[in-house]
Structure formats: C-alpha cells, structure tokens
Design a protein around this nucleic acid. Sequence first.
DNA 1: AGCATTGTTTCACA
DNA 2: TTGTGAAACAATGC
Length: 286
Amino acid sequence: MPELPEVESARALIEARALGRTIAAVDDADTYVCRPHLPGDLASALVGHTLSAAGRTGKSMWLETDGGEGPTLGLHLGMAGRIVVVGREGATESTAYGGDPMSAKEAAEAAAGGHPDPRLSGNPAWTRFAIEFEDGGALLLFDKRRLGRAVLNPDLAHLGPDALLIRKADFRARVGVGEAPLKARIMDQSVLAGVGNLLADEALWQAQLPPLQPAGTLTAEQLDHLWTVLRRATKAAMRKGGVHTGKVIDFRKKDAHCPRCGGVMVKAAVGGRTTWWCSVEQRWPR
DNA sequence: AGCATTGTTTCACA
DNA sequence: TTGTGAAACAATGC
C-alpha cells in the first residue's frame, strides 16, 4: 500500500493539521510497532512537547518537536498503515486521513458506522499508536497489518536519496551498477528511497525496461529515461491519489494483456516481490 | 482452506 | 567484506 506518494500525503496531512499542537498523552503500548522501545518510553519522551515540523525521505517520516530542540518521532506506515488526524475536541467533521485512500468498502463501513474515526467506529485494536493533543484531538497510526513503526529519534542514515529529490547524474551512478535485477535495484531503499513494488512495476513498464535486466548493464540513456519516467509516475500517483492509479496496475493479473502493445503480461518473483511485466516490450534477455 | 499481500529486517551464502 | 536473495515478521483479504 503505502509507497512514496501515499507517505507524502500522510506527511502533508500532518504538516497541515498537526503542527503547533502540544502532546498531552501517548499510547505506545504496542511493543511490536514501537520496538525496541518499552511501553511508556515514547510517552515519557514526548509528552509536553509541541510538534513543529514533519519531514519525509522515501517512505519514512519524522516529526520534530519544539523547533528541533525536543525529541523526534519517527513514523513508518509499513504495509498497510494510515495516518489519521482528529481535530480539536475530537470533532468528527475535522477528521482527516493520510496514506492510502479509503477503498469503497472502507468508506461504506465508515459511513455505516457513523464515524470516520477508527477509534470510535472501527476496530480500536487497529490503532497501533496514538498521540493525544492538549486540545482534545489526536494523531493516530491506524494499521490493520501491524507492520508500521513508531520510534524515537529514528536513524535514517541507511536510506538513499529520496526518489523525487535525486538528481539525474546521481540516479545514474547509484542505480546503474551491480548484477542485481533492475527492479530489485530501484526498490533497494539504500540506493533510492521511496519506490515500492507497484511503483517499480509501473515505472519499468512505462520506460519499457526489463525488470530482470542486471542494473549494471543499462546504458546512460536508459538510466536517464528511467529517471524521467520514475519522477513522472511518482508525481502522477501523488496527483491521482496513490500508486494503484498507475496505467499498468490493473493489468498485473493472469491472462492480462499489455495496454500498450497487447503482449501477454507475465509474472515472476523479482527482488523478492511479485513482478508483472509485458513479455514483448520488457523481454529479457532481449 | 490455502495463498498472496503495496514493507522492512535478519540471516545465510557466495 | 560485500553483495545478493530468501525467509521471517503480523494480520488480513480473496
């Protein structure tokens, strides 16, 4: 679910709605989501501080407090996380979501439940981490799968440059090396931060590049084109509401045909993830 | 019922 | 030592 575009929407939501609000309480009881911290660790560190900035590199977010003087909270949406910001006094009309768009089914459930706040109408257990503000509102990490993370002072040094910020020459140098399949290379967060399984399939399909081709064998021209296409696909996903809006995503299934040339779509595990590509345009070896 | 899942970390191995 | 790939992790949806 959440790849760079979804995480950016969550970050933007926090920036627009949560900055300037002071933390009154923290629910950090989930020891898996908050590992390696113990219950109470995040609470004691964060209570009394005021959110002052929301940053992001790739799929990782961090929230600064007190203008950078206080502790930093790292947030990751994992495989299925979503950020919910509840307005002051818990006003329903001011609840907003960041991350994956709600599916039609989820929206219907929320409407039927009469409240979009999952603390009130969904399964409360799906709120894995929560910040309560002094004004009565809250910031929640809502995550059915429980692979999201909330940690103190996150170490993001292992992340490569953000996929939207990396410059063309840097992209060429970092991506165009090694024997690993191209797709595995662009999904390697230490090479380039933010590209997930769907965005990778979409970008490679748009660039007509084979997922299985060793990254180090691409020409400079191919790498430059991929840089251009990847940025375009990422921005389009942000504009349209998520990586699932990509042009080839609906054709990542059995018996589907490439929407551009009609070739058969095929799949295999590449870089540990299910990968779909056009058997004609993205054939490897050529 | 069994399998797949949009992410990350850890571990084995060349 | 470095790079690569598979498995584990949690829990849900098809």
